[in-house]
Each structure stands twice: as C-alpha cells, then as structure tokens.
Design a protein around this nucleic acid. Structure first.
Length: 403
RNA sequence: GUGAGAUUAGCUCAGUUGGUUAGAGCACUGGUUUGUGGUGCCGGGGGUCGCGGGUUCGAAUCCCGUAUCUCACCCCA
C-alpha cells in the first residue's frame, strides 16, 4: 500500500468542511477590507526566498523542499507566501504604478520539519499583504482584520506586540545587543552562540531559562527606538485600544523571517499545544527594494489554517434539500427522474434500492435532508408522492405535478 | 535534527504470567415490526494484531530493526 508522505495530509469530510468554512470566512472579511485575491505559483526560484526570508533563517537554511528541475533551475516549493506576492507585485510593475495595492491569498506551503501537532510539512496559510501605505493606521488595520477573522470563527487569542525598529535605530541596537551577548558568551546556550553569528536578534526569543535570566538586563528594542518608530508604536497602541483590541507588549517578540521591520505582532492560542502561533505578521518596508523593486512600504500577516481548524467553532448545519426513495421496484425509474429534475433548484439525493418507509426515513435523516419524499404502490397508482418535512414533522401526499 | 510514548475491525478501544477459531461499542449491511426518522427487535460481513526479522513447541503479547502518528525540544503559521 502506498501512503501519503510524512507530514502531508488529505483533507476531506469534516476537515474539509472546517477548511472551507475558514477560507470562506477569511475571504469575506478580507474583501470587506477591500483586499483582492492573488494566486502565485507553488514553485519559485530558490533565490527569491534566500533574498527575502534570509539565508540565516531556519526556513531557508534547513527546511526548504529545494531541487534542480529539468531545465537546471534551482527551484523550491514555497515555504511561505509573502515572497511570492512581493515578486508578483514587482513583476507586474505595480511598484512603479504607485498607490495602494492590497492582496490576500491562501494555499499550500512546504517546510521540511519534524511533524507534530499543528506542524505539517505541507500546510496551508491564509495571508494578506498591503503595499504602498506607510501609515501606522495600516498596521492597525492588519491587526483589526486578523482579530475580525478570529472573532468570526469563535477563536480566542492573545495578541503580542513589538516594534523591531527601522534602518535608523535597528543597526545601532543590533551592535549594542551583540556587544552585550558577547560579554556573556560563556554562559549562554549553544543555540544562542550560533544565533550570534546568524541572526543576533533571535537570542531574545530563546526558550532557555538561563539565557533568559541573563538577557533580562540586555538592551531592550522598545527602549532604543528612534523617534519615528517610537511615535508610530505609541500611535499603534492607541488605535488598538480605541478600537477595543487587547494586546500585550512582548519586547522579546522577534519574527523568524529577516524582512520584518517596525511593527511585529503575533496572535497566539493557549489551547492547541506548543505550536501556539496562529497568526503572525508585521511591517516589511525594505523587502520590495531588496527584491529589486522601487522602495515601497508594506505590511502583511499570515494565518496557519490547520492550527485554526482545531479551534474553529462550527455553526450548526441545518437540514437541507430532498431525499427521494422508492418502496416499489417499479417506482425506481420515476424516483431517479424526479431527483434529476429537483436538482435544478435544490440539493437532492435518492436511493436506487427499494426499502420500507422506516429505512427511507433513516436514510433521509442520515444525509441531513429537510424533506423525505417516497413513492410506494399507493402513490404509484395515483400519480402522487408522499413528502415529509423532517424538521417540522409534517407530511402530505401531493400530485407529481406539484412536487 | 534530538528525546519520550504509541500503532489490534471503517472509528474509539479491550485483550489477564506468551497457550485453542483475536473481542466490545459505534458504523456498515440483511431481515423484521399492517407504510413513519434521528431513540425497536433478530441476524451478518469485516482484522495476515503497522511492516520486516529474531527468541520459542507456540508471539497481538518478549527482543531488534524500520515506517508512521502523538507529545516535548527546536522552529514557526
């Protein structure tokens, strides 16, 4: 027997219902915010992710499905969605067009990781990217949109907020932090030593208790912001408070992708285990330029659909459509024809086997039909059909013409 | 990539110190109750006990390997 690859799932039945319910809800919210759908390829040139996500990140460094295709191109399955959207934005010359361009997308992402709860090798993200707007109101709008989607799905969350600074304040901060961490290099964990070389900011996020206690006296990002970044961050907090969105400040929140600057946020859930981040995003004002576009401010976020699916409170499904059955062998052809006709306007299913009334009612109940319609010898003789409303428990025998 | 625990019918799980034809509930299916469901009665099908080796007279049970899943680390959505 051939099984699916490790960490790759089939989505069907109940899962599919949750999946589409999420997509439909998130799509509706995104459209209400004025965003437009964009579909980008699953396969991209590897260089795209090396330059955007960053070679120092784990995602690019060790988690990509990377290979050489038959044309000798170095390609990989996308590990995240932003890079492709930015690439498309530049390729379509929207950076030169000016103005605001707002997109949302959803689809499969691939990362070669060890699978566990809420972490698959092929997983799905819903994401949003906004280009051309440098106002912090746009950052707030992103957070409000994420919050709206989660609320509509009945999902509780905690919102964590931080500012990563910009080109003015970040480089100085980074140098200071490196100086600080190097001073206690002998006492920190191996991972942090490695991070010092690859992505120093990440040490702040270390889960090691010993490291954390050492870093307590480390310089804090938020206290070293330049005036622009600081003003924006203060303004952001004000907007969120005024719009009824609770948040916590986490000075150690850093994003794992190199392209973020200024606003960084993460929505976490306490109910799905250790993979608790259900949505994350932030501003990435330098990325368009990095990828050879005209400098364009941008903000975005992404949500992990599989993680959300565990938390979604599904609405009750109401009875719908017709189930049509025959109690007499001669009525089967008639039933099939009637079902076909009914499908022009309603959901309709039928059974090809003759059964007694009890069995038909059970079958109708099982497919969650609103009406159970049955033809037996009585009905056959009079050109009628017996119809029961399974919700209101009312029944009537009507002529075939009126059915 | 590291550590730990699982894997028995479609699903959820029993399976006594290794000992006859491996069980239950649900699901499926057939019959039945003068033609009334989600909540009747009686029956039936379905498992090479994840896979591959080994120990043994004998393995679902013990040992080794392997795959997958789960949990944690790590990473991140």
């Amino acid at each position: 027997m051939i099984n699916s690859l490790r960490g790759m799932n089939d989505i069907l039945s109940e899962d599919y219902a949750r999946f589409t319910y999420f997509i439909n809800t998130a799509t509706d919210v995104a459209q209400k915010y004025g965003f437009h759908f964009i579909e980008t390829p699953l396969l991209e040139e590897t260089a795209l992710f090396k330059r955007s996500v960053g070679e120092s990140s784990d995602i690019v460094g060790k988690e990509m499905y990377q290979f050489t295709d038959k044309g000798e191109n170095d390609v990989c399955l996308r590990p995240e969605g932003t890079a492709g959207v930015v690439r498309a934005f530049i390729q379509k010359k929207l950076d030169k067009a000016g103005g605001n361009h707002r997109f949302f997308y959803h689809g499969a992402m691939f990362r070669y990781e060890r699978p566990q709860k809420g972490r698959l090798r092929q997983f799905h993200q819903f994401g949003v990217e906004s280009f051309g707007q440098d106002s912090v109101y746009e950052d707030a709008t992103m957070i409000m949109m994420t919050s709206d989607i989660l609320k509509r799905l009945g999902i509780g969350y905690r919102l964590q907020l931080n500012s990563l600074g910009d080109n003015n304040c970040m480089p100085d901060y980074k140098t200071n932090l490196i100086k600080f961490v190097e001073a206690c290099k002998d006492d920190i964990c191996e991972d942090c030593v490695r991070r010092l070389d690859t992505n120093p900011i990440r040490v702040l996020d270390c889960k090691n208790d010993k490291c954390q206690s050492l870093y307590e006296s480390a310089p804090k990002l938020l206290q070293n912001l330049c005036s622009t970044c600081n003003d924006d961050f203060e303004k952001l907090k004000k907007i969120l408070t005024e719009n009824g969105i609770d948040y916590e400040i986490d000075t150690n929140l850093v994003r794992g992708l190199d392209y973020y600057s200024k606003t960084a946020f993460e929505f976490v859930s306490d109910n799905i285990g250790s993979q608790s981040a259900i949505a994350g995003g932030g501003r990435y004002d330098r990325l368009v330029e990095f990828l050879d576009g005209r400098p364009t401010p941008a903000v975005g976020f992404a949500m992990g659909i599989e993680r959300l699916m565990e938390l979604i409170v599904m609405p009750e499904v109401s009875r719908d459509g017709y189930y049509i059955g025959a109690m007499d062998a001669e009525a089967v052809d008639l039933v099939v024809g009637l079902t076909h006709k009914k499908r022009a306007t309603d959901k309709a299913t039928c059974d090809f086997k003759t059964k007694n009334l009890q069995k038909h009612l059970k079958a109708a109940d099982k497919v969650n039909a609103k009406f159970c319609a049955v033809i037996g010898s009585n009905e056959l003789n009079n050109d009628t059909i017996w119809v029961k409303d399974l919700e209101n428990k009312t029944e009537e025998t009507i002529t075939l013409k009126d059915f």
